[in-house]
Amino acid sequence: MLDVKNLTVRANGVPLVSDVNFTVSDNDWLMIVGPNGAGKSTIVRAISKATEYEGIILINGKDIRNIKAGQMARHIGVLNQYHNVSYAFTVYELIRLGRYSYEGNFLSAQKDEDEENAIMEAIRLTGMESLMDHSLLTLSGGELQRAFLAQLFAQDPEMLILDEPTNHLDLIYQKQTFELIEKWASKPGKSVVSVVHDLNLAKAYGSRTMLIDKGKVVSLGTTEEVLTSQRLSEVYDMDVYSWMHKLLSQWE
């Protein structure tokens, strides 16, 4: 459903990523991995139209430059790493905003009941019932991330884009988030593109992986094909395999 061709993003003329090509099909979970500053987040920012870019990005064959904001939200939903919340909106109000692209004007608006059901379903899925009336300012980092995930589920896009959503969270929230998304992504017609730092997460959840370094694609394919010992050593400038084995062997 997503088709990226010759994607280049520049900041003040300097390319952050150049000539990136990839596709994402239904029920794919594409992991984008690479060292700090490789351009992982830049790629997903381009896909979500949060930055200017050169090249072509197609969703279901349509250029995203020609897709209106409201329609775009039904194709793609983004979960960022951090949320700077300044005002005391309630969790319910946040989740309800996820339905923005469905509300439209009062002529095309869906029935109130349907809207309410979609919101309640998202709240139930993420287990936010007890926090529904809480202010966003009182939530922990993990709860806040879960509230934004619930907003995304209410939005119900075809594709989820995750930009290191669990990096700063406790393990329990990391587990919850990825399990929730895995369940969501198994529904027909859904797909996920996610930027991850943690190679273990890429291995555990990615159906395909794109390894990038210094703004260029080093390798793209199934996760097993891409994350080989040799490639990782070249990109990360260290013996990643031995290090991972050493860390994990502590648990045996």
Binding site: S48, K49, A50, A69, G70, Q71, M72, A73, R74, G77, V78, N80, H83, N84, V85, S86, Y87, F89, E93, L94, L97, G98, Y100, S101, L136, F148, Q151, L152, Q155
Partner: peptide, 15 residues
């Protein structure tokens, strides 16, 4: 409301 939560969030939900 969407802007008040954050400009990125506003874009994400389709504003």
């Amino acid at each position: 409301n969407a802007f008040a939560i954050g400009e990125d969030n506003a874009r994400n939900i389709g504003v």
